[in-house]
């Protein structure tokens, strides 16, 4: 399955590195990343392939949140976006 990770917050060094490291720890293969810094605010969206089927989305979210505690992190199943925003 694929998951969508979003990270938002004040821009500091090493956010992308910290998040990617957590992804690797959880066996998540990063497929696509888009990021922007607007007015000092960092916003990143990452699509990852979760290799281990049993890994729970919540678990990934918790560990990334721990890695970048000052940022707002969301991890959601790709299906939600596909269903909600496509007919």
């Amino acid at each position: 399955m694929k998951a969508v990770i979003t990270v938002i917050g004040k821009d500091t060094t090493g956010i992308l590195a910290a998040v990617s490291k957590e992804c690797a720890n959880k066996d998540c293969n990063v497929i696509d990343v888009t990021q922007s810094v607007l007015d000092g605010y960092f916003c990143m969206i990452m699509i990852v392939e979760v290799l281990e089927d049993s890994t729970e989305i919540k678990e990934i979210e918790t560990s990334i949140s721990k890695a970048v505690p000052e940022m707002v992190v969301h991890v959601m199943h790709e299906d939600i976006f596909n269903l909600m925003h496509r007919i």
Partner: peptide, 11 residues
């Protein structure tokens, strides 16, 4: 590719 606005809207 999922649109960034859609993602932010859902969240």
């Amino acid at each position: 590719m999922i649109n960034m606005n859609d993602i932010m809207e859902t969240i």
